[in-house]
């Protein structure tokens, strides 16, 4: 703990905390996206998968909360480091170049890092309210009879709305950009930039965003256009609210 606090004092230490928390979230996002692809296996399979997570992987219900608290701590640390560091970075050049400054090496993903981060925070809050808590009890934004027992219907109806679906698409494009520069930066920040680590870094930098954004877009667009995600067993207990 002493080491953690001494590290947290320096800019590099804050970045290491950002990198570590980021990589934990990357690992989780990859698993989450892989799970989401089960939507194409049909309602029963997807709901069985959702129930497995709800039950704490059929091992211990508290595991679900352990996972949630870990992820929430990562989100908190990630944002805490980002706010501190980006404030410092802006303060480091109080007078801008009057004639402009040219870029030669950076990428759009790197320049959009903070903007994408803000989009992702808004998306995260909406996504949790939308499909985990289920607070929008109408048939426009969310399936009116939101039920933890029917995650499949919640997803297909909820993301099927064109406006909601478009937000999911945009947010996941931002996620792809954020992960592209984030993974590369995490390796660099943790000091893993040499011939031994670079093949892994390059592969993850390229393929993780392709997989996560690709999978998310596939699911979102399928829900929006009703392709491959038919509700096989209509839930007869569902009654329209209006």
């Amino acid at each position: 703990m002493t080491a953690f606090f001494s590290l947290a004092k320096s800019t590099i230490g804050k970045k290491a905390i950002m990198a570590g928390s980021g990589l934990i979230m990357v690992g989780w996002i990859v698993l989450h996206m892989a799970g989401n692809l089960l939507v194409f296996a049909g309602q029963d399979h997807f709901n069985a998968y959702a129930e497995m997570i709800q039950s704490g992987f059929h091992i211990e219900p508290a595991l679900l909360w352990a996972m949630r608290i870990t992820l929430l701590a990562c989100v908190g640390l990630h944002i805490w480091a980002a706010v501190g560091l980006s404030g410092r970075n802006r303060a480091a050049r109080p007078v801008a170049y009057a004639g402009g400054r040219k870029n030669h090496a950076t990428s759009y993903a790197a320049e959009f890092m903070l903007g994408a981060g803000v989009v992702l925070l808004l998306y995260l809050v909406f996504h949790l309210l939308h499909l985990t808590v289920g607070v929008f009890s109408d048939d426009v934004v969310q399936h009116a009879a939101f039920s933890k027992k029917d995650a499949y219907r919640n997803l297909v109806v909820g993301v099927g709305n064109p406006v909601v679906g478009a937000f999911y698409v945009l947010a996941n494009l931002a996620l792809g950009m954020h992960l592209h520069h984030g993974i590369k930066s995490a390796f660099q920040t943790l000091g893993l930039n040499d011939d031994r680590w670079n093949p892994l870094k390059d592969a993850l930098t390229r393929w993780v965003p392709v997989f996560t954004t690709g999978a998310a877009l596939l699911v979102a667009l399928s829900c929006m256009f009703g392709v491959g995600v038919l509700i096989e067993a209509p839930d007869l207990s569902w009654t329209p609210s209006h």
Binding site: L85, T106, E111, S185, Q188, T189, L192, N193
Partner: peptide, 28 residues
Amino acid sequence: FGGCTNHSECEAACPKEIGVKFIARLNA
């Protein structure tokens, strides 16, 4: 000074072409 956000603009501007791999070394 600000912190590094891995744009690599420093490496592109360095008259001696010193690489950002040294930043990774410093971090480590």
